[in-house]
Design a protein around this nucleic acid. Structure first.
Ligand SMILES: [Zn+2]
Ligand SMILES: [Zn+2]
Ligand SMILES: [Zn+2]
Ligand SMILES: [Zn+2]
Lengths: 173, 173
DNA sequence: TTCCCTGTGCAACACTATAACATGCGAGTG
DNA sequence: CACTCGCATGTTATAGTGTTGCACAGGGAA
C-alpha cells in the first residue's frame, strides 16, 4: 500500500547534475534498445527539459534551441516533444501546456503529478491505489478507463514550511 | 462510501429540455442570491454549453454567438466563461481545452470527469474517496493539496456495449 | 448633474500547435 | 559506384486558443 513515487520533490541542494546525467544516460540506453534514434535535437530538448524539475513550455524550449541552432522553428521542438512523449521520456502537463521529464521511462505509464503553485516544482507518482479507486468509481458507472490525467495543485514541502535560508522561488536546481 | 455522482451518463432518450431548463433556472436563482448578474450574454453562453452533455470549445461558442450577435468576439466569450467558471456554473476540461456545465453549482468544488473517447459524453463525479486517497498520497510527500484536475478517458457504458439501434455517435441529447 | 462601477465593443496581439512541402542524409541493394 | 527508400530536419504558412488595452454605454450613488 506504499505510494509509488516516480519523482519526489528534491531538496534545494541536491546534486542536480546527477538527475540530468542519469536521465540522459537512461534515454540513450532505452532508445538504443528499442532501435529508435535519440538524435542531437531530441537529446538536447530532453536535456533542456531536465534542466529543472519544473514543467517547461514548448516556446521556451524553442527560444533556447534557437540560441544554438538558428534553424529551429515550432515544428522542430514539437517533433522532438512528440518523439519524447512517444518514448515515455517526458510527460505533458495538460493544465499548464508544459512538459516535464519522466523519472521512470522504462515502463509505460501515465503519471500523477503534484504541482507546487509557488515554486512550480513537480513530483510524479504512479500509484496503484489511485488508479484502483478511480477505476472502481468509474466501473460503478459502467465506464471503462483507458487513460488518466491527474494533476494536483498545492504547496510542496519547502514552500509550505520554508526554513530560514531556504530558497523557494525556483525549482531549477 | 458511495460514489458521489454530480452528472451521470445520460440515456440517449432522456428529456434534455429538463437538463437545460433546470441548469438555467438554478443559475438564475444562484446568481440572484449572490448578487451577481447573469446577463443575457452569460446566460446564452451557459445555455449553449448545456445544449449537450459534451464539452464545448470556446471558439465553437463564439461561432454560435456570432450567428446571433454580430459584435461577438473572443473576449465576449472568454469573459462569459470566466464569469461562469468563477460562479462554479461550468468547469473547464484541461485535456480538451473545453468547457462543460456543472451539475451541482450550488457548492464550490472541483469535479472529476469521465470522458468518453468515442461519443465525447462526460460524467462528473465529486467523490470523497478519490479526494481522500489523493490527499493522503500527497500528504505522504508533505504536499498540501489546494485543487485537483482529474480527467479520465475511456468508454462510456453506451459506447462500451452498444445495443442495436442505440446511437453512439453523439452526446448532444 | 457628476461620478463611479460594471459590462460590453473593438482592435490588436500573444501563445500554442499543426499542415504541407522541400531538402538532406545515411542504410541497404545491385 | 549509382540508386532509392525511409526518416529526420528545414521552411513557410496557417490553425487554434487565449489575453491586453482602451473606448463606450448604462445605471445607481453622491
Ligand atoms: Zn535534480
Ligand atoms: Zn514549492
Ligand atoms: Zn440532458
Ligand atoms: Zn460514449
Amino acid at each position: 500500500m506504499a505510494t509509488s513515487v516516480v519523482t519526489p520533490f528534491k531538496h534545494a541542494d541536491h546534486d542536480h547534475g546527477h538527475c540530468v546525467d542519469d536521465a540522459l544516460a537512461q534515454a540513450e540506453r532505452q532508445c538504443r534498445q528499442r532501435g529508435v534514434r535519440l538524435t542531437p535535437i531530441r537529446r538536447r530538448v530532453l536535456e533542456l527539459i531536465w534542466n529543472g524539475h519544473a514543467p517547461v513550455k514548448a516556446y521556451d524550449l524553442l527560444d533556447r534551441l534557437r540560441a544554438e541552432r538558428r534553424s529551429a522553428a515550432p515544428p522542430t521542438v514539437y517533433r522532438a516533444l512528440d518523439f519524447l512523449l512517444e518514448e515515455g521520456l517526458i510527460h505533458r502537463i495538460e493544465s499548464l501546456n508544459a512538459y516535464i521529464g519522466c523519472g521512470s521511462p522504462a515502463h509505460p505509464h501515465v503519471g500523477q503529478f503534484l504541482i507546487c503553485e509557488q515554486c512550480h516544482a513537480v513530483a510524479e507518482l504512479d500509484d496503484n491505489d489511485v488508479h484502483r479507486v478511480l477505476s472502481a468509481k468509474a466501473g460503478e458507472l459502467g465506464f471503462l478507463v483507458s487513460s488518466q490525467t491527474i494533476e494536483i495543485n498545492g504547496l510542496c514541502p519547502l514552500c509550505r514550511d520554508p526554513s530560514p535560508g531556504t530558497a523557494t522561488g525556483s525549482a531549477s536546481g
